[in-house]
Design a protein around this nucleic acid. Structure first.
Lengths: 158, 158
DNA sequence: TATTGTTATACTCTATAACTATA
DNA sequence: TATAGTTATAGAGTATAACAATA
């Protein structure tokens, strides 16, 4: 399409830069809780569903390889924020469930992240933010990640 | 502000996911040229200014530490895409200048990246893309990086 | 004394492949 | 045989600190 635009105007470039800026401030805001953006994401997803989430689903939600989820859960588990509960239905699955402490920390973590992010977004009108969100959602999740998790052989996850 | 929203709707999270998706496809499209997103960015900035760019300025433009720029320039230089020219005005500076071959490769690289990215953005109305761009620019470059490069002791660069 | 580029180092993130236990 | 979780490993990205040459 538009040929020969400067890189500083390129959407992919700006996306990457902006993402880095926001992630760094989120990371800094979480440090006092002993969390990083990654582990916070796992904790947040686990805390959203009282039935727990499988590691496979976490990987799909976060766009990671399942092998990367292991260490994240290990850390949270050893900090007592989540537990790995066996799934009675299918014993291959491990359901990641937030502990009571996990819920408390998650609450505070979310507030911290929100506070850190508001600095980046608060000048922008609400309507634009909603457009931004829907645009990013479309790009980030090409095929709307069905709740059934991973029948698609890790298609868009990589 | 809005308390207790699901993480999948969080702007920072979506930003990070979308950025990853776009970066991966850009990376894949550049692989046949022996470039990555990072080295392509250096090549693009160098090619935009026939007078060349200092490594310090590249670091500021890309949000990197100056030490990270060294290896990127090393690679491009050994591939014959850029040269390190001494700055007569200030011999501490090294001006990174695209070679003729560098300009050719840069041209093709840009086309490849544009093609890869159009898949992600082409459904979105032009007006929304422009809003997105200006929003990302604001977040990515907090204080509009003055052309004078780095008097601000690597403030926003980190 | 301050700044540009540089080297070195350590840590995080990303990407793959292979293994185990269950199904 | 296929899938969930796991281990291991190599490579890329990120973050700091210190140093030489130049200003």
């Amino acid at each position: 399409m538009s040929t020969n635009h400067p890189l500083a105007e390129d959407l992919g470039f700006l996306l990457s830069r902006a993402s880095g800026v926001v992630a760094r401030s989120a990371s800094a805001s979480l440090a006092p809780l002993g969390l990083r953006v990654r582990s916070y994401s796992v904790l947040a997803f686990a805390g959203e569903d009282s039935a727990g989430v499988t590691q496979r689903r976490l990987a799909a939600l976060m766009g990671l390889d399942p092998s990367q989820v292991v260490a994240l859960v290990d850390d949270l588990e050893s900090s007592g924020l989540v537990t790995r509960a066996p799934d009675p239905t299918d014993r291959r699955n491990k359901l990641i469930i937030a502990t009571e402490k996990g819920h408390r920390i998650r609450e505070e973590a979310q507030q911290r992240v929100d506070r850190a992010q508001s600095g980046h977004f608060d000048g922008v009108p609400q309507q634009h933010l909603e457009q931004l969100r829907s645009m990013l959602r479309r790009i980030a999740i090409p095929e709307e990640v069905p709740a059934g998790s991973g029948t698609e052989s890790a298609s868009g996850a990589q």
